[in-house]
Computed example of a mutant assay.
Amino acid sequence: MARPQILLTRRWPAAVERRLAESYDATLNAEDRPMSPTEIGAALRTFDAVCPTVSDALPAEVFAGVPRGRMLGNYGVGVNHIDLDAARAAEVVVSNTPGCLTDCTADLALTLMLMLARRAGEGERELRAGRWTGWRPTHLIGTRIGGRVLGIVGMGRIGRATARRAEAGFGMKIVYYNRSLPPAEEMAGLDATRLDCIDAVLEAADIVSLHIPGGGSNRHVIDARRLSLIGPAGMLINTARGDVVDQAALIAALAEGRLGGAGLDVYDGEPSVPAALTLMENAVLLPHLGSATDRTREAMGMMVVDNLDAFFSGRDLPNRVA
């Protein structure tokens, strides 16, 4: 019996590619070349399963003419790059990889907070450019995050992990907004105050960290008005999805001093990043590194393969989203 044909849209960790090759007729992207939506759509009409990443765009037209019984094994938690309604209409099954990247992304949120508060990005740029003239009492004075108020928007797995690190490691006070009340057992041991709305969190917090899905009603949920609520001394951290922040409004707020700073790992329309944003000294910019550790990226890939195995054996998928 012929093995199912699988296509990876990008290079994956070697251990995962080996496992795929052992079980499937796997086509790997050896050149790691990004694929267009047109190419992915053509692949869905040819392969039994396509494994995209969060950097691939899969709009509705990708699913036109796709035969039933296909699967998308998404390498990543977020699925706002996939038109899930169109996938369902085409009877294409979609899975994702929740949980395994929680700790790494929370670590990175704290990294961005510290870099921004201590002006580490500015300092490194100054040193590498040969402009550092030596230690002096007034040089690159930053701020401590210890004892400050951290506002979490989205108290899911990553939001909770970020809050726990901030509270235990730095004595930060936690306020948060989540649409639903998190289960008590998942909040056990965490001293966090739930506020009634996002605006209340932005007004109360010294630092705001975003942990909500992208797309839909969350697109530009942090707009010019809400950025003004954070204020000229406040900081915004985004390790969620780029489109939850109105990027043009963010640039204006940073340039005009209406926001103290921003630490970003994700961007609207990435990998394109506005030149104006790259010139901001009060911004720390990382290239979507949230899950970028060896163990995490391998675990993500293995989770995709677990979902593929379930799909092709007729079992319920562990992480089905459509």
Rank of each mutant, 00 (worst) to 15 (best):
A15L: 13
R241G: 11
A26Y: 06
R315H: 14
L279S: 09
T9M: 07
K173N: 11
D268F: 02
T102K: 01
G142T: 07
R70V: 09
N74H: 15
G76K: 09
E167S: 14
F312T: 01
V221Q: 12
G121F: 12
V92P: 01
T133Y: 03
C100R: 12
F312R: 02
L289P: 05
F312A: 02
Q5V: 02
E298R: 06
D265E: 08
N282C: 07
M71L: 15
T53W: 09
L195V: 05
A14D: 14
G147S: 10
L8Y: 02
T143Y: 09
L116K: 04
L227Q: 07
E167V: 00
P67R: 11
M303S: 11
R320E: 15
P4W: 10
E185R: 07
I82Y: 13
H81M: 14
E124I: 10
C104I: 00
D83M: 07
R68M: 07
G73A: 11
R315F: 07
V304N: 05
T239I: 06
A30W: 08
E167T: 02
L44I: 01
L259P: 00
P183W: 12
G314M: 07
N307A: 02
R241T: 10
A109E: 04
A283W: 00
N29P: 06
D56C: 04
T38Y: 05
V62Y: 05
L250I: 09
S313K: 12
D309N: 12
R258P: 09
L286D: 04
G215L: 13
P232D: 14
L289G: 01
I152F: 07
G156A: 02
V66D: 14
G290F: 13
A2S: 13
I82F: 13
A49D: 04
T293V: 06
L44N: 06
M155N: 01
L114D: 06
A168R: 13
V92T: 04
L195G: 10
D56W: 08
F47D: 00
M302W: 02
L285G: 00
D223R: 10
E122I: 08
A161P: 10
R68Q: 15
E122T: 05
D85Y: 04
Y176C: 03
E61N: 11
D206R: 05
E186Y: 05
Y177V: 03
R19Q: 15
G123N: 11
